[in-house]
């Protein structure tokens, strides 16, 4: 009986040790929600078992989400394990999931040997804060692979909007040539293209890194322009993959 208790204890200890420092695990952090304007927001950060980091975002920025796309990099094994350990602790801190009405969530997944440990972040906590800090540090080291930045400037009565490629690319953009509905400016009205997109599908690549167009209308005091492609994604030819993005630029 003592032996079996010892065996059980050893197993427990081993499993605890194993959980405490998961190596060769895949760490995923997903954030999904919606902005005040109704734009959907999605971010997926993954550290693979081979220490390769990928990050995909539909729009990133503090007050204005100016960049979107794919970023990548590599970290060392120590940092990988740190993220895995913090991630696991953060998972254990969270309460069981409950049905919430909001569409927003952030979630951590840890996958090891086919087994998935996961939790939605409903309680936060110190471990999660630490995990998130390390994650943001890693994010800052990543380089764009296929990404875009949106910029805007006021030129006379029009707002010029510029999309610029980040990284090697390519990055696909989609527009509705006839309607500027994918653009919006808070407190503004009667929006129309002053100089609209010449075609619906535009690829930013090393040869053509920038694409511009301009809007006219009655602009309000808030000098911010938003672009989302979610309402015209279906226009894209299926051989023209388009990532759903929601961007913002201030002018």
């Amino acid at each position: 009986m003592i032996l079996s208790a010892l065996a059980t204890f050893s197993l427990l200890l081993l499993s605890t040790v194993a959980l405490a420092s998961p190596s060769n695990s895949t760490v995923v952090f997903v954030e999904s929600g919606r902005s005040t304007e109704g734009d959907r927001h999605y971010s997926r950060f993954e550290v693979g078992a081979n220490n390769v980091v990928t990050w995909e975002t539909s729009g990133e920025g503090v007050f204005c989400q100016t960049i979107a796309g794919h970023f990548a990099g590599k970290i060392d094994q120590a940092l990988h394990e740190k993220l895995s350990t913090l991630g696991l602790k953060a998972i254990k801190d969270q309460d069981p999931p409950k049905k919430s009405k909001g569409q927003t969530f952030s979630k951590i997944y840890l996958i090891q040997d086919g087994k998935t440990t996961k939790a939605a972040i409903n309680k936060g906590g110190m471990n999660f804060d630490n995990f998130y800090s390390v994650l943001m540090e890693v994010k800052r080291t990543l380089k764009p692979t296929q990404a875009v930045v949106m910029k805007a400037s006021k030129i006379k009565d029009d707002v010029q909007i510029q999309f610029e490629l980040l990284g090697p690319g390519p990055f696909n953009l989609i527009f509705d040539k006839d309607r500027p509905e994918q653009f919006s400016l808070p407190q503004s009205s009667d929006l129309a293209f002053a100089s609209g997109p010449r075609r619906e599908q535009v690829t930013l690549n090393q040869k053509n890194k920038m694409y511009s167009l301009s809007l006219k209308g009655k602009f309000g005091q808030m000098r911010q322009v938003h672009y989302t492609n979610s309402n015209i994604l279906e226009h894209a030819d299926h051989k023209f993959p388009v990532q759903e993005i929601a961007l913002c630029a201030e002018f």
Partner: peptide, 12 residues
């Protein structure tokens, strides 16, 4: 522009 600091979701 306080609304820029906020971000809604369908229940909030």
């Amino acid at each position: 522009n306080p609304e820029q600091l906020n971000r809604a979701d369908s229940g909030n």
